[in-house]
Design a protein around this nucleic acid. Structure first.
Lengths: 154, 154
DNA sequence: CGCGATTAAATCGCATGCGATCTTATAATC
DNA sequence: GATTATAAGATCGCATGCGATTTAATCGCG
């Protein structure tokens, strides 16, 4: 427990650049800006596209299960899914076994738009300026951090 | 254990876990959840607190300069700053030299609440589960990534 | 079987974010 | 100096996010 080895312990952050959360926050905003043109072309928002990806990964999910994967709850997802339904990209129907649940599925059009979106992503991977190994390492470190935070929040 | 570099090009992401942006996005949500109890106690939101930190770092900034630091524009900042003004934490006044600009300053109360917030941050640093070196490395990697993305978005 | 507890989704209110537009003040051009 | 162009904030509309509440369906336990 060496307390004052030279700058071992991260202290209470004093400036913006000391906040890890601000680094995450601002990087998220930056991603949003890079992605915007691509998704605009598709008539989708970032989150709408992410939802389509999650459904592609596993179709016919309940709102709750989708929320677990996206770290969102029904108050965010329900309006979003209704918009996607309005665009014809997903269907929403009550589960006949448990009527409390709503099952969400991709339509053909939804699959197509998801595929079209995925094709446009390579330039964005380029835009990160990261070498493949660094890309994956950062991804891994972030998910580890996320899981620690989620755990701490419980 | 690593394959050689040739086969390491990241392809178009197919699942959520392939998206670096989703790792950033969900980590940002997770931070928000961990921070929420602290800021709630102060009657602030995450962004409001960040704005106070930025003003503490440099006081008497224009809306535009604050926006550059926070990666936000006036359409987001103006309502936020008005709320902070309503709470008595900042003052907003037109620059007498250039009346287009609005200068924002911390009040005494604003300084106090910012200090109180900073004191409560240590448990959150703990919650990251990161060793000091990893903490700083991740911070550095993220800001580098953010800057690459911002550059690419221009 | 009955009925309160729990659960899933939906709804509501508020605070971000951002594109588009508007207003006003300054700069630039003549 | 008048006119136009540009710049800084403010405003508006829409889409997230989230806490709190509501509604409806199912579960639990006597």
């Amino acid at each position: 427990m060496k307390k004052n080895a030279k700058s071992e312990e991260p202290k209470a952050p004093a400036t913006l650049s000391d906040f890890l959360c601000f680094a995450v926050y601002s990087t998220n905003l930056a991603f949003g800006r890079v992605y915007k043109p691509l998704f605009e072309e598709l008539g989708l928002t970032y989150l709408q596209f992410i939802a389509l990806v999650a459904l592609h990964e596993q179709d016919d999910q309940t709102v709750g299960s989708l929320g677990e994967k996206l770290y969102l709850d029904s108050s965010t997802l329900t309006p979003l899914l209704k918009r996607l339904e309005g665009m014809g990209y997903v269907t929403r129907q009550r589960d006949s076994v448990d009527e409390r649940q709503v099952r969400v599925s991709l339509t053909e059009a939804g699959r197509r738009v998801r595929d079209r979106g995925s094709c446009g992503l390579s330039p964005i991977v380029e835009a990160t300026g990261l070498a493949p190994d660094d890309f994956r390492r950062l991804q891994r470190d972030l998910t580890t951090l996320r899981d620690s935070l989620i755990k701490a929040a419980t």
